[in-house]
């Protein structure tokens, strides 16, 4: 029988509680991994990510690449025979990794930050700005240039940022959500 240290057990319980998912019920059948579009690009396959949670290996799972390569396609959730919402657990793990600063250096985390910053400032996404900031932040400003040029030629990139009247309401959502999530887990 597996005996977890107090800290490991606590982590597994916290993830279960926060996600509302019975993590310990996973019997490692691997169906989530079989259908995962990104599994071959991950360091730990989805079923292994769940196993790491079960084992309470918090640091390992929160710093793994897998949770950031996940495409949030919900195939795992749709097919789990234990009805564990694996994709939801991925969300919880990403949020926890962020709170511990373990998301730094993960490209998908940077992308989410830039995307949401655009939404926070304008109320809607400004695609051109996101693309430009992504290029500058990753040090590859010309990587998407061919696509950007095609989009501009077809007038499929809005040049001026959008702006909604309720932008203050949107900023309030960002502020309050961050405050509440911090309070809840602080």
């Amino acid at each position: 029988m597996l005996v977890l240290s107090g800290r490991g057990q606590e982590f597994a319980n916290r993830v279960s509680l926060e996600s509302g998912q019975p993590v310990q019920q996973c019997y490692q059948c691997g169906k989530c991994t079989a259908g995962c579009p990104a599994a071959s690009f991950m360091d730990y396959a989805p079923h292994q990510v769940i196993h790491l949670v079960q084992l309470g290996l918090e640091e390992v799972v929160l710093s793994c690449r897998a949770i950031w390569v996940c495409t949030s396609c919900y195939t795992c959730t749709a097919r789990c025979p234990c009805r564990i919402e694996v994709a939801r657990i991925m969300d919880i793990l990403r949020a926890r990794a962020r709170r511990k600063g373990l998301h730094r250096g993960q490209r998908a985390a940077l992308f989410a930050d830039l995307f949401l910053d655009s939404v926070r400032r304008h109320g809607r996404l400004h695609e051109l700005e996101l693309g430009a900031r992504w290029g500058l932040s990753t040090g590859q400003p010309w990587r998407e240039a061919d696509l950007a040029a095609g989009l501009v030629a077809k007038r499929k990139l809005r040049l001026r940022p959008p702006r909604i009247k309720g932008v203050e309401e949107v900023r309030r959502i960002f502020r309050e959500a961050a405050r509440l999530e911090e309070g809840e887990h602080g």
Partner: peptide, 16 residues
């Protein structure tokens, strides 16, 4: 209307 947050939204915070 405002952006729904798409994948980056729920990837970052449940309430957001």
């Amino acid at each position: 209307w405002n952006c729904c947050g798409a994948t980056p939204g729920h990837n970052t915070g449940h309430l957001l």
